[in-house]
Structure formats: C-alpha cells, structure tokens
Amino acid sequence: MINWNDYPNFTKTEFDCKETGKNHMQKRFVDVLQAIRTEFGKPMTISSGYRDPTHSAERGKSNPGAHTYGCAADIAVSGGDAMRIIFLAYKHGIRRIGVSQKGSGRFLHLDMAEQHGFPSPALWSY
C-alpha cells in the first residue's frame, strides 16, 4: 500500500483510473517518478496513471497494457521539457518510453513493465 504523503509532488487522485477510480500503483514506480520530479524541478502533470483492465483504452487490447500493472504513467509535456524528462527517466532506470509530441495532446509515456514481461529497452512514438 502506498503512503501518498511520501510524495510531496503527487497526489493519489492524479493516478486513479479515470473510469473506475481504482488505484493499484506500484510504490517502486512512484518512487522513481518522484525522484524524476524532484530533479526536474517543475510540475509534472499526470494525464494517465493506473488503468483498470476494464478501462476503455485497455478493453480492446489482446494483453493488458503497462498501466494495468500500476507501473506506468503518461505525463502531459512538450518540447524541451519532454526531452529533459526523457533524459531524467533514463537516468533513473526507466527503459520503456513512449513519445507523443504531435498535435494538442502531447505527452510522454513512462513505464517499468519489464518485470511483467514487456520488452525492454523500448522507445516508441504514437
């Protein structure tokens, strides 16, 4: 169980599933995100954290995505800040990074799902 008071820059609500309200984030992953945020020195907006397997973004997948394991987050960020977060994520041990930097919904996906059989390292764009 995560003690959200240990994270001065994040709240549980940011990571709650947007459709069910459930939250099964892994402490190890949130610890790394907090380390990244501390070094980044600016707010990091979490646009998606935990996703219940029934979430609409997960239902159509043949296998559950990293968000369903509580070890992934999408961060709303663009430009130079996105590049800095990618650098910091890699520095802090994140080896799975998705990049969406086109249009209005720019974000980075960071995850530590290799422990669940996801290929690592992995870098992709949306």
Rank of each mutant, 00 (worst) to 15 (best):
M1F: 09
N3V: 03
W4E: 05
W4R: 11
D6R: 14
D6K: 15
Y7V: 10
Y7S: 10
P8K: 06
P8A: 06
N9I: 02
F10R: 14
F10A: 05
K12H: 06
T13M: 09
T13P: 00
F15G: 00
F15D: 00
D16N: 14
E19K: 12
T20N: 08
G21L: 13
G21E: 09
K22F: 09
H24M: 07
A35H: 09
E39Q: 13
F40L: 12
F40Y: 15
G41W: 02
P43Q: 05
M44E: 05
M44V: 07
I46Q: 14
S48G: 02
Y50E: 03
D52I: 04
D52K: 12
T54L: 11
H55C: 06
H55D: 12
G60D: 11
G60H: 14
K61Y: 00
S62D: 13
G65L: 06
H67C: 06
T68R: 01
Y69G: 01
G70H: 09
C71V: 12
A73C: 07
I75M: 10
A76G: 04
V77S: 02
S78L: 04
D81N: 07
A82F: 07
R84V: 03
I94D: 07
R96M: 04
G98C: 05
S104C: 06
G105L: 14
F107H: 15
F107M: 11
H109D: 06
L110G: 01
L110M: 02
D111H: 08
Q115S: 12
H116G: 00
G117L: 03
G117D: 02
F118H: 06
F118S: 03
F118P: 04
P119T: 00
A122D: 02
L123G: 11
L123W: 09
W124R: 13
W124V: 03
Y126M: 07
Y126N: 12
